[in-house]
Nucleic acid binder design. Structure first.
Lengths: 328, 328
DNA sequence: TTGAAAGCGCTAACAG
DNA sequence: CTGTTAGCGCTTTCAA
């Protein structure tokens, strides 16, 4: 900026002003400065700007995995909405691990983000403390935390699966199974499994047909392997709910390889409304959790909180059951 | 740090040293400082650190879309390899748009990253200038640029598809088609299409069976729609190569809906070795471009360049043809 | 092994 | 509309 100021014959402060859209500065001065900047190959230094003004334009976001269309949609919604205010996302992956999440949160907070968005409502005690002490908006997503740290934008994973079980029982299925990950790591998957068990108990049905397909996330292949185990150990199962559409599709392919018709031989459902479930043959019954909406609403909430005009602290999403050809 | 220094009875400089792993400081002093820091809820300020030391721990990365398993794998490889040196990724999405890429590159460079990784070898002139002037390692990926800005880690998209056409012609297919996006936006997709046309011409076959399925990226649904058009307008097509496994799977489902057997009625191939092609029924012939390797190798190249000990400027990947059940 | 002084590049605050 | 001064929180540099 000093160089530009020298070339243009103004003070560094005026150069600084020329790069802000709002500040009052004459058009000619600004044009001359911007031209000189381009000439000199000047690149604005956000680091110095952030340090001096004590406000970054970062929003920190942690997701379990970058390679998941649902979380990608949430990040997309966040990113696009925050871009309207020139805020940038600082993204980290926890790999479905709370310890890793803690490390990541600590690292991200060092950048002094304006807000932080985390996935899920369960964290290590230290992570909770770090978030609470950061004195910035904290948004938990993809869950309805029993004890929110700050704010949340999410839905009940257990409740959503309960609704699906209710529907399946309604249309006459009795021997239902659930394919998910190993318990204890992916808390959203565990919550879905818990919702399955609770709903089965409520209906007086056997809740023990649970297949654990390995550590989350469960791939298509693991869904297929789980379906193979299910068909071999509990061949009278009438319908199976999978923790995601990806594992549900894997399960479907296993049936196709074995010549078992879906849904007449066995019904299959997934979770997450991934594109594959809408186009596979047969299409797959699923639950739409409005991934992109979660991101957009979280971003809007952040902007409102920063403006001091948030209407609500929390946003609860109503997931939608989508009935397709893989079930009756 | 001043607060911690006061509490601990040392100078701020000593506190600073306590947070570096290497620096020489007595064990007792460091322990006391770290304990005081935890007590006070101190969070290290990377912004100030970066400004003073004039080096960030950022590597900037631009990808066309976050919601793409191939690019996600590349970012995963980058991220994990760079994490070994405590470097963090600053990620941006271009949405397959060179103008947007230019804006993004400008924004990312303001953070003074240590290196920048971009997808593809085509950029606006201004973006090229910005990258060249940044005086940091620039890595182009997923392509073999005719005129590299700095370094590249990639493969020839055209060459990979050429190899696939050669194989198809070898095994007896003659009337081949290509399903891709509209020309002009996604340059990797266009390159694949060009590779198809070149190879067909080389074999003296008709290269005009080209279906444009809309602006990239092409979804499963768009692949299905394109296949419907292909079957209606050019029903004697023997095999179709799709720009990605996702569109290939969509095309496959369209055949299934119409009762057309694959590969006996028509053969289908994709690109990218997505999980879906390995598990669908039938499995889908594809090209493995080693997405994750691209990221890992780019990261390793960056680390070597920063250490001043890079063995090679560029890394050319050899894509691998994977023959599966969707083709003869 | 520790400390003192200076300053990274920008902008808040105030003055004109 | 423009300029001056000071300082954000750290680390480089030099000294002890």
């Amino acid at each position: 900026m000093a160089d530009i100021a020298r070339v243009t014959g103004v003070s560094p402060m005026t150069v600084s002003r020329a790069f802000k859209t709002d500040s009052l500065i004459s058009k000619e001065t600004r044009d001359a400065i911007l031209m000189a900047a381009e000439d000199l190959g000047y690149v604005f230094d956000s680091t110095a700007s952030n340090l001096r003004s004590q406000r970054s334009d970062f929003v920190a976001v942690t997701i379990p995995s970058i390679n998941n269309a649902n979380f990608a949609d949430t990040v997309g919604g966040l990113s696009e909405t925050l871009a309207t205010r020139k805020m940038q996302i600082l993204l980290g992956y926890t790999n479905y691990d709370m310890q890793e999440e803690e490390r990541l949160i600590e690292q991200l907070l060092r950048r002094k983000p304006q807000a932080i968005v985390v996935t899920g409502g369960k964290h290590t005690p230290r992570a909770r403390k770090l978030l609470a002490n950061a004195h910035i908006p904290v948004i938990e997503t993809w869950d309805v935390p029993p004890d929110p740290i700050g704010h949340f934008v999410g839905f009940s994973n257990a409740g959503a699966v309960c609704g699906m079980v209710d529907h399946f029982v309604d249309v006459g299925y009795q021997r239902l199974a659930f394919i998910g990950g190993d318990v204890g790591r992916d808390t959203r998957g565990s919550d879905r499994r818990n919702g399955f068990v609770a709903a089965m108990n409520r209906h007086g049905l056997d809740p023990s047909r649970l297949i654990a397909a390995g550590p989350p996330p469960i791939s298509m292949r693991e869904g297929a392997n789980a379906m193979a185990r299910l068909l071999e150990t509990l061949p009278d199962t009438e319908a199976v709910i999978c923790v995601s559409d990806l594992s549900a599709f894997g399960a479907l392919t296993e049936c196709q390889r074995r010549g078992i018709p879906v849904p007449d031989g066995i019904a299959i459902a997934g979770f997450g409304n991934y594109e594959i479930g809408a186009i596979s043959v047969p299409t797959i019954t699923t639950i739409n959790a409005f991934s992109r909406d979660i991101g957009e609403k979280a971003a809007r909430l952040i902007l409102d909180l920063l403006d001091g005009q948030a209407l609500a602290d929390n946003i609860t999403i109503q997931p939608e059951l989508i009935l397709r050809d893989s079930s009756r």
